[in-house]
Design a protein around this nucleic acid. Structure first.
Lengths: 322, 322
DNA sequence: TTGTACGCGTTATCAC
DNA sequence: GTGATAACGCGTACAA
């Protein structure tokens, strides 16, 4: 219709510079009149790509999806990829299903790359994908995967920071409600707390483990109180566990922060509405996700990328509980 | 390699019955040895489809994504579509951006259909997509869109149910914290409450509007208490608003449920951890999303579908607040 | 700068 | 049952 060949039309649409102004104008006019829209599927076939990347959520649990953490990841990632006309495909494990299906999907050429939210302890998926040819970036340091590309918050530093803050406010008998020992977030935060305590010459024996949930935080606090009735502060590795701890402390007749200071982790919405509002350590999740997307783009474009972790600094948010 | 034509190989892969056992075996053997995986992009091009549907979240707000409501929608939808090798593409409006880009994407042939989570008051997107040729199903009754396919909880019935329950427990001075007047969830729940109250011969003047948030629920409760100090019950159109109301009531020295009964809506996680735990009305979000997916599949397959709404019954969850 | 012609990897429509 | 062969709609060497 523009009186040119398909090739020239294609050049105009793809934004090539090697087109005369006259031809370009003619094509653009034709596009306008025809309401022409390129077929993305055909385009991707010709280009040898899929035009989409996967966001893998290996947890077969609806609860994790409502986790603000994932919400931020989704937003950060979409935001980063929107301009590259790459779409985000959500891949969540179905309840009671092995990750087999996800692996098959990822290796089946459906996507150009993957961002894996790796909070789960089951690392077979992580290993298999990481070893394969598909570009992939983890959000959160994956356990048992060597040379992986990942972005994470500096959990170790965060643990130190929490302990050091409590120490700086004069607390001396400081406990921690740590995460599970088979999740890097739990391990690293605990290690940081431990080192800060040791450096200050304080005991590191008041440790209880939770599952990052409110209920587990409450029972962990119960255990701590029973074993160390003299404690005057506690660092919980998640806000939910901190909220559980607040409930436990209230039930035990302890006033927060007067008797016991509490500091959480995540800075999710509930942190503001607890009584008292939680002092907590925030992680820049959206920025982390954006960075993961950026790294993935680099990998997809074929550039070699040193598998150096990208680590973001945590950020202390001071409210009333500590 | 199997000594057959592409056509026969394709038949085997696509699971056609019109293949001899011998040929099938040969092809399967070849597939095994070659590790052959069909290219999804080429397949979709040949089939004239995209192999994906969009889940549209028109709210340019990260907060709504962490809403358990959306989490359940995502899970329900993926669950339903997983078997059809249809993938869910998440389409969220970027903050501060018009919905223009989303419309372009949807009409650009990127997806075979769309599920639109239509909670937002801005209905231009709803109208434009609904009027177009793309199969689409709404979750939540869209405002100002005629003949739309949608699934929803029976908000009117839910409002009635809440009021009737409060009445049945002997309350007589019953208020409501309603949602915004330009969202169907707000409108319909209020209408149900109003009718139940009228039918029981009770006054319907104690109405305050909130924005479905905790803060707005608290201020709405403040207003209600100031104007109707004698009220003995309140129906909040969301759990978050109910939580805000609880705080406001506590500040006013009112005991729940002794002085004032409170009933919420949604049955999200916080409903269990408020003090006291919230009696609330749950909606079967996951089932609703699955149904929306099912409807969308029907539409995509080209079958005509009467645009009859699918309405799910709400479910009263009795805890301690009423 | 432009056009020709082929390739991308399948599925679908025919004849056979 | 099976096998050529034509789409599917676009990108892009290569030649002009």
């Amino acid at each position: 219709m523009a009186g040119v060949s398909r090739a020239t039309a294609s050049r105009v649409i793809s934004g090539s510079e090697l087109v005369s102004d006259k031809a370009r104008a003619a094509v653009e006019k034709a596009i306008e009149e025809l309401g022409f829209v390129p077929n993305p599927v055909a385009r991707n076939l010709a280009r040898g790509r899929t035009g989409s990347i996967a966001l893998v959520v290996p947890e077969p649990n609806a609860r994790v999806l409502s986790d603000p953490f994932f919400a931020e990841i989704i937003v950060g990632l979409s935001d980063q990829l929107d301009d590259q006309d790459l779409q985000v495909i959500l891949l969540i494990a179905r309840p009671g299903e092995r990750t087999e299906k996800i692996v098959r999907y990822l290796t089946g050429g459906h996507v150009d790359g993957a961002v894996i939210a790796s909070h789960h302890r089951d690392d077979t998926l992580n290993r298999r994908i990481s070893a394969g040819p598909l570009p992939c970036v983890f959000v959160g340091r994956p356990l048992g995967v060597a040379n992986a590309h990942y972005v994470d918050v500096d959990n170790y530093r965060a643990g130190r920071q929490a302990a050091e803050y409590l120490i700086s406010t004069g607390r001396t008998r400081i406990a921690t409600i740590a995460g599970p020992t088979d999740m890097t977030a739990g391990i690293d935060r605990l290690a940081g707390w431990r080192d800060a305590m040791s450096n200050a010459g304080l005991p590191t024996d008041a440790v209880a483990h939770g599952e990052f949930t409110q209920a587990s935080g409450a029972t962990a606090m119960d255990r701590l109180l029973a074993k160390h009735p003299d404690l005057d502060a506690v660092f919980a590795a998640s806000d939910l566990m901190a909220a559980g701890a607040l409930a436990s402390l209230a039930a035990a007749g302890k006033s927060v922060p007067r008797d016991v200071a509490v500091i959480g982790f995540d800075d999710i919405a509930v942190a503001e509405s607890t009584d008292p509002p939680l002092t907590t350590i925030a992680q820049p999740v959206r920025a982390m996700a954006a960075r993961a997307g950026e790294q993935l783009l680099t990998l997809i474009s074929g550039q070699e990328l040193e598998p150096a972790p990208v680590v973001f600094p945590p950020h202390l948010v001071i409210r009333d509980s500590a």
